[in-house]
């Protein structure tokens, strides 16, 4: 079977929502089991006492990336059909900076806050409430953000094309960087004083 299955009409469109629910359950379970429902565990990455976010995040991204590249190579999946978020240069950077500030204050990101809600974290509920308010505010004040929101459109840009590298070289360097980072994280954890949470 050549993936992606639903865009290729191998699985009917009607299954979309059922699959969404199942994938969501897998997503929520692994996030919670890895400790992403605790804001203080998440924040450990930024203070060096617990690098769980760094490890889970990069392992996950690289596992999926490797899977996609190998399936594409074997002809089991058409990687050119996968959805690529369009790249708008300045909104991506400014949005990321704003999200970083929100991260440092709130201690969650949207996905992990839903996990926190599931196990009864009140701070996660307040954070998710803030998300609604923030998105509502953005939508209402859209005319203020409109020119920024639409600026610097580069289309469905891929990072290795922009750097003038081949996909293989970039993926390889990313894996090497991640391995280096994981060992570095273990090293830093040993130096930093443990925080009880």
């Amino acid at each position: 079977m050549t993936g992606p299955l639903i865009p290729m009409n191998i699985i009917p469109e009607a299954w979309n929502n059922v699959i969404a629910l199942l994938i969501g359950i897998g997503f929520g379970f692994t996030l919670e089991a890895s400790g992403f429902s605790s804001s203080r565990k998440i924040m450990g990455t930024f203070f060096g006492y617990d690098f769980v976010v760094l490890r889970v995040f990069f392992t996950a991204a690289l596992t999926a990336m490797t899977g996609i590249i190998y399936f594409d190579f074997m002809g089991w999946m058409d990687a050119s059909m996968l959805y690529i978020n369009p790249f708008y240069v300045s909104p991506a950077i400014i949005g990321g900076l704003v999200m970083g500030a929100g991260f440092a204050l709130g201690g969650f990101c949207p996905g992990t806050s839903f996990c926190g809600i599931a196990i009864g974290k009140i701070d996660a509920m307040v954070f998710a409430g803030g998300l609604f308010v923030g998105i509502f505010f953005f939508s209402e004040a859209y005319s203020l953000f409109e020119s920024l929101y639409n600026s610097g459109n580069m289309g469905d840009a891929l990072i290795f094309d922009m750097l003038g590298m081949s996909k293989a070289v970039f993926a390889f360097l990313l894996i090497m960087a991640a391995i280096g980072m994981f060992y570095g994280a273990t090293f830093i954890e040993k130096l930093v004083k443990k925080v009880e949470y």
Binding site: T66, F73, K167, A168, A171, I175, A178
Partner: peptide, 22 residues
């Protein structure tokens, strides 16, 4: 795990470019 990641990484490095029929 590290060795596995290295093997997979080198595998990608020596993979020929994939052409898609668009």
């Amino acid at each position: 795990l590290t060795i596995l990641a290295l093997i997979l990484g080198f595998g990608i490095l020596f993979m020929p470019d994939i052409k898609h029929n668009n």
